[in-house]
Write a protein that binds this DNA or RNA. Structure first.
Lengths: 247, 247
DNA sequence: AAAAAGTCAATTGTCTGACAAATTAAAAAA
DNA sequence: TTTTTTAATTTGTCAGACAATTGACTTTTT
């Protein structure tokens, strides 16, 4: 996506935000004139909002802002660090002890990261505290050599934020698996709960644009402090891999 | 979205499916000719695939099919019933006892459904069994009168499937909240587990296209039998409600 | 022969202008 | 007031064009 494209999207988003749900947007020619772009470009941008269910286009009638366009942004579909999330929902958090070490990958980790069995990985563990109480415990496994040592020195926030900030490798998406696990003795100690108590666990594979996994992570959450949600869309998502005629 | 638009999307999806990841698609003029549409229409359709991270467009270079385009369709972002999901992942399931009754809405339920406090609701509860063991317990709360009595008689599957099948009211999306709860005495009995054991709970609001909530549901899952995942996209999702200048 | 520099077709991003079909609101008629 | 007719509006789609840059090819130089 181009810079100007990005700018158009942002201006269009703002315009939609300032339109009451149920109201009609200006007509495409008017809007294009107002935003200083061609109708073709405008329509491309609008497609992205239509896909998200934010606007609804009725042929020969107009484009309308949809009803429940709230709270989508706090959903899981956007990849953001726990730190960013916490600050956004107003949870005052601090970081507990951080452990960074380099070690050999387990078979599971090597598989997840697409490495050889003997490969070395960086193991980063940290806890998120609120009122001196641990509410999340995060484990990140990265291939060794991905980030420099000096970058690790002043590591304070999340691995995701670090990778996003440096911009390389270019990240694309994260596959996040949702699980409930019973607290191990170690986790029970960290969270100050009973062994066997339920914890929410998100297991995630972070992909670069080239399809390589650069971060394999386990995030444990104490129930009640974080609230995750997803907007599920009705109807088939047109995915090319559903019905491949040739493979 | 128009019929022809839908058709174009499908043909484009098929074409992408038949292209190896990493390979380049034909140029836009060629593709438009091949699909019998204008370049403008083609570009609009491509936008939707670009948004999903399925293709990547490099200016002056070409459009490329991205690497891990698999597994997206099995994620939470598509709204499907547990029954459909179970059959797809090959879990042989049957339905346990079904309880359907009409009663007064609680304050929470009335708020969720946008009803008055005294309003009546239909309360549908059922368990999903595999090998005679309950692995999921589903509670659906619907406004009374939404579905006819005769439709309820031969109700066998999921509420979602029922609503999707009848086509009215037209559904749009579902907001799904992810929680971990401790099993109550009732739930512990149903699942045959200890009271206080962790359960995955999905709380969902099902929206029609007009923004009304027609189903407020609680789904409890025994850990280990179902696997939910989400694909989280990097970068800001341009959501109009992030920074509204006027509200 | 190998490497560097230059050339040119190819490709996406964007724009202008146009037409069709159906909706919606205004105008006219009963 | 009610109904019918009319006309402007609006989205969906198309054709054609240009700019800027890339990437492969050709030529030149070492």
């Amino acid at each position: 996506m181009t810079d100007t494209t990005q700018g158009l999207q942002e201006r269009l988003a703002e315009l939609i935000a300032n339109t009451q749900p149920g109201e009609r947007l200006p007509s495409e020619p008017d809007l294009a004139r107002e935003l200083g772009v061609s109708r073709a470009s405008l329509r491309e941008a609008m497609r992205t909002f239509e896909m998200q269910g934010i606007i609804h286009r009725r042929p020969r009638a107009g484009t309308y802002v949809m009803q429940p366009p709230a709270v989508i942004e706090s959903g899981l579909e956007v990849l953001e660090s726990i730190d960013t999330l916490a600050s956004r929902i107003g949870l005052p958090v601090s970081m507990g002890d951080v452990s960074i070490r380099t070690r050999q990958a387990s078979v599971e980790e090597a598989t997840a990261l697409g490495l050889e069995e003997a490969a070395k990985v960086i193991d980063i563990r940290r806890s998120i505290l609120t009122h001196k109480k641990a509410v999340a415990y995060l484990i990140d496994i990265l291939p060794d050599g991905l980030v420099g040592d000096e970058e690790m020195r002043d590591f304070q926030g999340s691995v995701l934020d670090l990778l996003l900030k440096r911009g390389s490798p270019p990240l694309q998406s994260s596959r996040c698996e949702i699980n409930v696990v019973q607290a191990s003795r170690e986790l029970a100690k960290i969270f100050g709960i009973q062994r066997g108590d339920g914890l929410l666990m998100l297991k995630a594979w972070l992909y670069t644009v080239s399809g390589k996994v650069v971060d394999y992570s386990f995030s444990y959450f104490l129930p009640g402090y974080f609230r995750f949600h997803v907007v599920r869309r009705v109807g088939q998502v047109l995915n090319p891999n559903l019905n491949p005629t040739i493979k």
